[in-house]
Design a protein around this nucleic acid. Structure first.
Lengths: 341, 341
DNA sequence: ATACCCATCCAAAGCGCTTTAAATTTATTC
DNA sequence: GAATAAATTTAAAGCGCTTTGGATGGGTAT
C-alpha cells in the first residue's frame, strides 16, 4: 500500500493525505481522522526511501564502531547502543551500524557522509589526538562523541564521564586505606578514556607523594584473559601490589581469578576497585556490591547521546555544540579493605 | 555532487554515466574509464535513497534484537553482528539495528516490512513456538534465523549449532567421569537453544539410567550474577552437585565464583563444562583452556547467516530455504576431572 | 448582491537515481 | 556505396514521497 493507492481509495489527493498524516494544519479535522483511520486499517507506512529523497533527511543515525586489529567487540558498544535505540524508537529514527577497521577508517567516514544515508553519527571510542573529529567537522556531518579528545581544542559535541576525577577518587580511597603499591589495569591508553583514567591515578599518587612504578601499570583491551594475565604477572612482580584499580568489570573478573589462583582473598588480602559501566550482563549491585566501583551507566549515556544528536540535527545549522559531563560516584563494595601489614 | 552534475561535467547523459558506474556492458570501455575516473576525483557516491527508490532495493539488512522485560543486552548479539557486518561491507550492504520489546514485537516487524527499509532481516533468539516465523512468512520478507524453532514444521532458513548433541556429549563426558549429580545452569528455556540443550542433558542422563532431579536444573538469563546465585544455591542443596553444565562463559564466571566461595576447587572438587561462543572478550583457549567446553563461534555464525540472507535476497523469488547446522566440538580444558569419592 | 477572506483541497514539480525505448553513430556485408 | 547489423548514447518515464503555487467554495462584511 502506497500513498497513491491510499489516496485513491479515499478519493483524496496525495497532497491532502500526506498532509493529514503529517499533521499539517491546512486539512480539515474530520478529513484527517478519516485518513488516519484508513492508514491504520491498511497498515500504511510511508516508504522511508521516498520520504528521505523528498525531504533530504534519512531519519537514520549512524553508529561507527572502531575495530582494531585485535578484532575485539567490546560489550560496552552493545549496551550503549541499546540505550541509544530507545531514544531512536521514541523519536522515529533508525539506527545504522558500521564496523570500521582502523586502516580504512577515513574512507569509511567519507563514504558515509557522501552517500547521505544518515543524518548524523555517533562516534565511539575516541582516541588521544583523534583525527576523526576534524574529519567530521570538514564533512559537515552532525556528530556526537561518546567520550572526548582532550587534546582537541575545537568545539564539538560530546558526552563523557569524568574519567580523571573518578580514578583520582578511587586511587585516593586506596591510598587512604594504606595501600602504596596500587596496580592500574587499564584499557588501551591510546583511547582517551583510558588516558584520562591514568592521569587520575597518577595525580592521586603524586598528590600523596607516592612513587609511580611503571611496572604497576598495564594497558590493553580489557578482556577477562588480559585482566587475568596482567594481574597474574603483577602479583609475581618484585613490587607486589596490594591493590588493583581495574578499568572494567570484565577485566576485573580476570583479576579476581588471578588473585584466587595466587591463594589470596579479594577484599582482605588484596583490594580491588573497578569502573562499573553497569552492563546488564554484569551487574555489580545489591546491598554490598561485589566490587567497590566508580559507577556510570553506559546505557544511559547512549540514550542521552542519541537525544543530543537528534537535537543537533533538528536545530538550525550552526548550532552550538552540546556537551554533557557525567559524574561517576564511588560506590563501596566488598572488594576493598585496609592494607594488610 | 550528484549524477546530473557529474554527467554535465563529462558532457554525457545521466544514463551513460549511471551505466558506466554500474558496469553495464553497453558502454564503451574508454568512456567507462573516463567516467569512473571523474567519479573518483569528485568523490561521487550515488545517493543511497534515490538508488533505493529506483531499484526497489535498500541494500540494507535489518537485525531485530528481542528485549524482554529484564532489559538484558546479551554480548552474543554484538559478536554475531560483528561477524555479519563483515559480510555486509564486503557485499555492499548496510546494517540496520532495531531493539524489539516483547510486548510490541509483532507491530515492530510489521512496521519494518511495510516501511520497506530493509531487504531482509536476521531474526535473533528464536523461542520455542516462535510466532515470528509465520509472521515473517506472511510478510514475505526474506529472513534467516539464528537458531531454529524445533516446534515449527514449515520451511524457513536458519543457521544453528547442534545444541542437543553438544549438551548430550558434554553430559556424557561428565557421566563417564563418574558424576551423577550434574547441575544444569541454562539460558531461558523459553528460548529454543536452551530448550534443546536441556533435551541433550536429559537424554544423556536417561541413556545412562541416571535420575533427573528438577532441583538441579536452573534456567534464566545467563548473567554472571545469575550464574553465581544458581550455583550457590545448588551447592547449598541437599542433592549436592559435583559437576556443572553451564550454557555460557559469562554464566560460568559466576559459577566459578560460587565454587570458590564454597571453598571448593574447580576441576578437582567440582567439574564444570560450559558452552563457549568464542566471544572476543572471553577467550577460553590456550594450551589448556580454563574451561572444558563445547565450542562454536558465534561471530562465524553471524558472517554465515549474513551471506545466506544475501543469497536468499538475490535469488529469484520462491527460492528454497537455506539451512546450516554447525557442529560444536567438545574441547577439553582444566575444569573437568573424575568425581571425588 | 458584490467583494474579499479563509478554510480546504488539488495538480504538478522535484528529490536523485535506474531503466525502457528510441535515436544516433560506427562497423560489416554484398 | 547502399543496406543491414552492431555498438553507443540519449531522452524520458518512473520509483513514492513532500511541497509549492494555485484552485474551489462557503462565509462574512459591505
Amino acid at each position: 500500500m502506497n500513498l497513491k493507492q491510499l489516496s485513491d481509495k479515499l478519493g483524496l489527493s496525495q497532497t491532502t493525505v500526506s498532509r493529514a498524516l503529517n499533521d499539517y494544519p491546512e486539512v480539515n479535522e474530520a478529513t484527517r481522522e478519516r485518513v488516519k483511520k484508513a492508514a491504520r486499517e491498511h497498515n500504511y507506512q510511508p516508504n522511508i526511501r521516498a520520504t528521505g529523497l523528498a525531504t533530504g533527511k534519512s531519519k537514520t543515525i549512524g553508529h561507527v564502531i572502531p575495530m582494531n586489529s585485535t578484532e575485539v567487540f567490546n560489550p560496552i558498544f552493545g549496551e550503549f547502543i541499546a540505550g541509544a535505540s530507545q531514544a531512536y524508537s521514541r523519536c522515529g529514527y533508525e539506527l545504522s551500524l558500521t564496523m570500521a577497521h582502523e586502516d580504512a577508517e577515513e574512507s569509511i567516514y567519507r563514504e558515509i557522509a557522501s552517500k547521505g544515508s544518515v543524518d548524523g553519527i555517533i562516534v565511539h571510542a575516541p582516541r588521544v589526538n583523534d583525527p576523526r573529529i576534524s574529519l567530521l567537522q570538514e564533512l559537515q556531518l552532525p556528530f556526537v562523541i561518546h567520550g572526548r579528545d582532550s587534546s582537541n581544542e575545537t568545539d564539538y559535541s560530546w558526552i563523557d564521564m569524568n574519567n580523571r576525577r573518578a580514578f583520582f577518587r578511587a586511587t585516593k580511597l586506596l591510598i587512604d586505606l594504606g595501600h602504596k603499591n596500587i596496580c592500574l589495569i587499564n584499557g588501551r591508553e591510546t583511547l582517551n578514556f583510558a588516558w584520562r583514567r591514568r592521569q587520575g591515578y597518577v595525580d592521586a599518587l603524586t598528590a600523596d607523594h607516592l612513587d609511580i612504578h611503571p611496572e604497576l601499570m598495564y594497558s590493553g583491551d580489557l578482556t577477562e584473559a588480559n585482566g587475568y594475565s596482567a594481574a597474574a604477572s603483577a602479583l609475581a612482580n618484585t613490587i607486589k601490589p596490594t591493590a588493583f584499580l581495574v578499568s572494567s568489570y570484565v577485566g576485573a573478573l580476570g583479576v579476581r581469578r588471578a588473585i584466587h589462583n595466587a591463594g589470596l582473598e579479594m577484599g582482605s588480602d588484596v583490594s580491588v576497585i573497578i569502573h562499573d559501566d553497569e552492563l546488564s550482563y554484569f551487574e555489580n549491585d545489591g546491598d554490598i556490591p561485589q566490587f567497590t566501583a566508580t559507577r556510570s551507566s553506559v546505557r544511559d549515556a547512549g540514550e542521552r547521546a542519541a537525544l543530543m544528536l537528534i537535537d543537533l540535527i533538528n536545530q538550525p545549522n550552526g548550532a552550538a555544540p552540546l556537551t554533557k559531563l557525567l559524574d561517576a560516584p564511588l560506590v563501596l563494595g566488598a572488594s576493598t579493605g585496609p592494607v594488610k601489614k
